[in-house]
């Protein structure tokens, strides 16, 4: 069925609708998993959508009660690899590396804790660094665009972004070890 998946109150949920609801519910975790393996944001969006479509198609094979996120991330991993193959670029990680990484991906519970820690760490970040991160991730600006808007060089933007992420990484690790 095309378009919005709307159902009447009395209609039972189909398997596809059930997994779609689960997907929407856990989409943040699945998206974070994809983005970690496929850093390009537009490509990650495409992979997410492909994953959603495949999850919907394979809905009958999902066993209720089993780990939906693990099942969906397994499909997402294949979609990342497919995306890499389609791009035919030499600058993508090897299949073996992606598979090895997937096997040690942080569990879903950890993602929730990291989100909380990250929000606390963002508050500790200097406003200028937060602005840069916002422009990069929410506004999706390139380093050159940011440099133009902020009167910085592209190299300075890249260095500042790198430092901000490193701060967040270390801060989140510390928060997880010793939550405030």
């Amino acid at each position: 069925m095309n378009g919005p998946s709307l159902h009447q109150p009395s209609d039972p949920l189909t398997p596809a609708e059930q997994v779609q609801l689960l997907f929407v519910r856990h989409e943040g975790t699945i998206r974070a998993f994809i983005r970690a393996l496929q850093p390009s944001l537009p490509d990650a969006d495409d992979v997410l959508q492909e994953t959603f479509l495949t999850v919907s198609r394979k809905a009958p094979s999902f066993e209720p009660g089993t780990n939906f996120v693990a099942w969906a991330c397994g499909i997402a991993r294949l979609k990342v690899l497919e995306n890499f193959r389609q791009r035919k670029r030499a600058t993508v990680l090897s299949e073996a590396a992606i598979i090895a990484l997937s096997e040690v991906a942080p569990p879903e519970e950890m993602t929730g804790m990291k989100e909380l820690a990250l929000s606390r760490c963002l508050e500790k970040l200097a406003p200028k660094s937060r602005d840069l991160l916002w422009r990069r991730y929410s506004g999706r600006q390139s380093s050159d665009e940011m440099a133009g808007a902020l009167g910085m060089t592209s190299t300075a933007v890249r260095v500042a972004l790198s430092k901000a992420r490193a701060f967040l990484r270390d801060c989140v690790s510390a928060e997880l070890r010793n939550p405030s």
Partner: peptide
Amino acid sequence: YWETASIHGLLEHALQ
């Protein structure tokens, strides 16, 4: 890798 990439993966939401 996961320590760093997880931050990359979560930042968009965190910065909404």
